[in-house]
């Protein structure tokens, strides 16, 4: 029985990675849930919006690096973020103007919006491939580790090491700041309240003199910011590949639905629920079991990593079966 080592191993292999991943999913799910709340459709292009935003960040990062500008010990990408967000927001506003607005005025069925978002997904996917290609790109040039495995062992004298990467801390800090700002915006400002009112009851919002187009524009800008941030943090933490951003759509949708589509608080909770489940289910627990005095031949892994999407899927199915409005009561079914 070696409780301390077991605890450190759980922290190192489960809690820390899942927290960072959860923060990324939460930001992604927030974007999906906001668009759902205001525009009332599931945006299939959100993953590719994240990819596009991240591609912009990478291009700008390369540009800044070329000019010799850095933000050491932070990654240069953070410096590139605001401009990339602005570019992505412009693209989203343009998309809304030429694609979605038409259907909004026609009050088209949600599924038509979903279909249109598939068209947008194709275009964004193509744009991303066009500007940056399909190869794997690493663009984290900040300090790699805040705590290194060797240092941790030296400090504590424990057998088990613990690593805390800079990107993980940045991810969680950036996500926390963004979420705090978003909630302040939604609950304290006139514009934010107008957004919530519109999400609650579109017709009554109109009767109250709220300009729907303005609400929609704000939503796209915020969604672009959230998507770019989520994509960049994910890319910094792991690496950038256009295709992974399509795949991450499923856990993001799962997170948004688990929390209740249209409910921002739920999206955050959903992000962490999905992330922790995914990491916990695909982590081989043998080492930790051994510390606790339970030797095993098997890996004690519930599912192999390749099936991590199955975890999101199962969570999604369970929620759809038992509580289709989500844990935090989102929009009705």
């Amino acid at each position: 029985m070696d409780l301390l080592n077991a605890l450190v191993a759980v922290l190192n292999f489960v809690v820390i990675p899942a927290t960072a991943y959860g923060a990324q999913l939460a930001l992604g799910a927030l974007g999906v849930t906001l668009i759902y709340g205001i525009l009332r459709f599931s945006n299939f292009a959100h993953g590719d919006t994240m990819a596009f935003g991240t591609a912009m960040v990478i291009l700008l990062t390369w540009g800044l690096q070329g000019l010799g500008i850095a933000l050491t010990p932070l990654p240069t990408a953070l410096l590139a973020l605001p401009v990339a967000i602005a570019l992505t927001a412009l693209l989203m506003l343009g998309t809304d103007r030429v694609v979605y607005r038409f259907y909004r005025r026609k009050r088209a069925a949600p599924i038509i919006f979903v279909m249109a978002s598939v068209g947008v997904m194709f275009i964004m996917n193509g744009l991303t491939r066009l500007v940056i290609g399909v190869d794997e790109i690493r663009f984290d040039d900040g300090a790699r580790f805040i705590i290194g495995v060797a240092d941790f062992r030296r400090w504590t004298g424990l057998e088990e090491g613990l690593a805390l990467r800079g990107t993980q801390v940045i991810t969680v800090a950036a996500a926390a700041l963004t979420v705090a700002w978003l909630f302040w915006f939604l609950n304290r400002t006139r514009s934010g309240k107008a957004m919530r009112a519109y999400s609650d009851n579109e017709d009554l919002a109109l009767l109250s003199g709220i300009d729907p187009e303005r609400v929609v524009r704000q939503t796209w800008i915020i969604a672009a910011a959230l998507a770019t941030l989520a994509g960049t943090l994910y890319g910094l933490d792991k690496s950038f590949r256009a295709f992974t951003y399509f795949q991450i759509l499923l856990p993001i949708f799962a997170a948004a639905i688990v929390g209740g589509l249209g409910n921002p608080l739920g999206a955050i909770a959903g992000g962490f629920i999905v992330a922790f489940s995914e990491v916990a289910v695909t982590y081989p627990w043998r080492k930790i079991a051994a510390y606790l005095g339970w030797e095993s031949d098997g890996l004690m892994q519930l599912l192999s990593t390749e099936y991590k999407f199955a975890v999101s899927f199962v969570i999604l199915i369970v929620v759809l079966l038992f509580r289709p409005t989500g844990l935090f009561r989102g929009k009705s079914v």
Binding site: P110, I111, F313, V333
Partner: peptide, 25 residues
């Protein structure tokens, strides 16, 4: 059996998931 009868986009999301899982299998 699970996803029909709910909002139309839920089926889309559920099938997106099952599609990826089958390919993973």
């Amino acid at each position: 059996k699970v996803a029909l009868g709910l909002r139309s986009d839920y089926l889309a999301i559920a099938t997106l998931g099952i599609g990826e899982i089958i390919v993973a299998v």
